[in-house]
Every structure is written in C-alpha cells, then in structure tokens.
Design a binder for these strands. Structure first.
Lengths: 225, 225
DNA sequence: AAGGAAATGTCAGGAAGCCGTCAGGACGGC
DNA sequence: GCCGTCCTGACGGCTTCCTGACATTTCCTT
C-alpha cells in the first residue's frame, strides 16, 4: 500500500488530512514535530511526505535538508502558510517537489499528491516494486526476474517484502523474525539464513556473490537496489 | 453536453456531488427519491446515473431493476454504505456498472464516473464481463463458456462476481467470505474452496490446472483474464 | 601469516501447514 | 416429498517450513 507521512504540528489539520488520504486508499502516518518526522521517515521511508514548514523545534526546511542529505528520494510536498515567494523557492531548491499554500483546498492537495506519486512511480506501474532485474507485483504476488516468473514460497515473498520495506538499510535477523514471523525471540536457529539463501538462489545471478541481497556481518541483511 | 443524474436523498451530499461534477463539465440533475429519479431517468435518459442504494420509498435496488427492465442502458454507479458489502454484488447482479462505498473520496468518484463514460462509449463493452472463454452477462445473469450456456448456482455466480470485481489481484478467503457471505469470521471450513472447485469444474478447460481461477498459496484466489 | 573463534552458508529430513476433494446432511423452494 | 443448493469436517497429497549438524568464510589476535 502507498504510504504517506504527514509532518504537521497542527493536529486538527493533520488528522483531517489523514482522514482524507485514507479515504483515497493511502496508509497515513502523522508526526507532530520535525525531529519525530525525520526519525519516522528515516526508519520507515514512506512513498511521499507532506511537510509543514512552520514546525516547533526542527523546522520544515531543516527536516527537508536532512532528508535529502540522508539520501531520501521520495517526493516531498510542502505546506506553507506564508505565501512568501522566497519560501517556495527555498523549498524547491532544497529538494521539495511541490508546495501548497495554506489555506488550501483538500481537492487540490489530493490532486497534487496523486500527481506526485504518479510521477514518482513512472518507471514501473503502481504496486510493482523492483530491484536489479527483479520485479515484484504486490497485487498478484508474482515475482519476475528478467521478465521470467519466479516461483517464491509465501514465506520467501514475505521476507523479501520485509527487506524491501527497509531497502537500503540493514535489517537484523531479530527484526526480520519479528516482521515476518511475528516472534520476539532471539535467533538461535538458521531459519532466516535458510530463506535468504533460497531467495538468493532464485533471484541472484551469482548466488554465491549476491549483488542485491547482501549480508552485513554481525548486523543482518540489506537489500541493495 | 454529458448529462448525469444523481439519485440521492441526502441533499447535502447530492449538491456537493453536483458541484464537483459541474466543475468537471457535466450537466447535473438531482432527484431526491427513488420514484422521482426513475421518472426523470425515463423521461429524459441521462448519460450516466449515480444511484444511492438507501432511499426513502423506492430503494436503489428497485430503481435499478425497473430501469433495466425498462430497457435503459446507460451506465449506473451505485453508492453503498461500507458495511453492506454484499450489496455490491447484488447491485452488480442487477446491472450496475460500478459502485463506490460511503464515505468516499471525491477524486475516486470522479475518476470512476469518467471511466464509466469512457467505457460506455466503447461499443459492446457494457453489461458483459469476460475472461478467457467465459462471458458473464450481468443483465441476464447468464454465463457462457465458448458460447454455450453454463448453469451456475447463485452462490457460485456471487463468488465469481466478487473475484471479477478485483480481477488481477489476490483476494483472500476472508475477504471473499465477507463480500459474498457477509460474515466476518475467520475461515476454518472449506466453504470457499468448495465453491471455487465447482467454478473451476464448470469454467476451466482443465480444472486440475486452472488457467484463470488461480490459487495463490497462503493468500487466497485470483482471477486472471 | 597462521590460528582460532565467531558468524554465516549449506543441506537434508521430518514436521507442519495448506489446499483439493468428497460425501453426508441441513435447508428451502416447488 | 423431491431436488438443487449449500455448508461442513475428514482425509490425503503436496508444498513449505524449521531445525540442527556440518562446512565455509570472515576477521581478530598473536
């Protein structure tokens, strides 16, 4: 599901937005100040961020700057009360993708959100994830490699999706166990490793030297795009 | 100009719809109960009807039934409360073309209206759903395979329509139970599977290796076109 | 550079889970 | 009552999953 993070300290506004976005079928997370928002966006990158500029503590500009410096690539839509032209320019220079000035119409906002997501999802249809030569269609749960379908067992796909959710960063075995298996136990068996091996066998060119499903010693696994 | 008839007793909602539709360039007529709507639709057939199911007096189902029996062919989009999932199937069986559950997003509604009108412009596309060698006539409730009629039990047709609604995507047993049976229980019996098996027996060339009514292990079923 | 400890990769077999199938019985319409 | 329909639970086949033993790699220590 497409995930949107709303970083906005006016909670009335934030929850209003959440309602409208959820009706449109998005999964919505709300952060009520800059640092919370930044943390949330880093640990679990959403598909789009709606960012208020005037925030207590860490303001919107700094959040945006930190995000982009951290390599975050998702579209960011800025909400600004001041229709000061310079804010818009400054925001766009820092890597915002669009802005809406308050007060704004919900319809306008929704339309812009959709436009940004459509643009962002230009390579590859919505609902299909990809890395390397692999395409995952979340709608049908079909996975293809070089255009040829690959049969993944349910657990394998779940594991792959958990890695995808946090692509780029290291995910520990314990976290994978929790996300995919629901346990909270320490890992003493080779369960995760076995499934990783199977994924490599099915998805990597040279399973012995994986190019995407990487091991990070003493830390866990990482999915590289 | 393209004309839309909105049959809806909640006038706030009705006029809200009218505004939005007019902004999109449609000519909009509002009828506030079922018999008025039916009369209006008969005397001056619009290009599309948006029909609320819960209406005072003549309810939406009856309006729809009367319309279709009277030979009206324009696309009908029904509005239904979210908790009445099985209404969707019933509506589609009576010859509705699409539905939107309340509360709904305006964007979604407009998109669906546009889609219906575009589709309606294509000859022969309306009223008959198809996949593979199977044709479902929603008007007459007749299902054909390779041109020969196939006798489907009511539940089987309901199930097939529920799959058709979400064709291409995986639909879980729980969702099918909810849409077709109206329960909210977990699935512990083989009810869904049994009906799926029956559909395969009647509609697939090789029921053992279905080409359209597919199993997605651990996830549910999927209708492939 | 060699050795060793810790971490990860690999494998195979049994256990568990999931789905297809079937038959029996309940239910309701004609 | 009869017939079609529907639901259910049991059973079996097949896939998937987990696990622990063993092999290999990595990296730190000396």
């Amino acid at each position: 599901m497409t995930r949107v993070l709303v970083i906005e300290d006016n909670l009335d506004l934030a929850y209003g937005l959440r309602n409208n976005l959820e009706i449109e079928g998005y999964e919505v997370d709300v952060a009520e100040d800059g640092s919370i928002g930044l943390a949330r966006a880093t640990e679990r990158p959403p598909d789009l961020i709606i960012l208020d500029l005037t925030l207590p503590g860490l303001d919107g500009f700094r959040v945006l700057k930190a995000l982009r410096e951290g390599g975050a690539a998702m579209p960011v839509l800025i909400l600004t009360a001041r229709d000061a032209e310079s804010d818009k320019v400054r925001g766009l220079k820092l890597g915002a993708d669009d802005y809406v000035t308050k007060p704004f119409g919900v319809l306008e906002l929704l339309a812009r959100v959709e436009a940004l997501l459509r643009r962002g999802a230009a390579p590859g249809a919505r609902g299909s994830l990809r890395f390397g030569e692999v395409v995952i269609d979340t709608r049908t749960r079909v996975v293809e490699r070089r255009g040829a379908p690959v049969a993944l067992a349910p657990k394998e796909l779940d594991l792959l999706l958990a890695l995808w959710e946090r692509r780029g960063s290291v995910v520990s075995r314990a976290e994978l166990m929790r996300e995919v298996w629901g346990y909270q136990t320490d890992v003493l068996s080779r369960t995760v490793d076995t499934h990783i091996a199977e994924l490599r066998r099915k998805l990597e060119n040279d399973p012995g030297r994986p190019a995407h499903i990487l091991t990070v010693r003493k830390a866990g696994y990482r999915l590289a795009l």
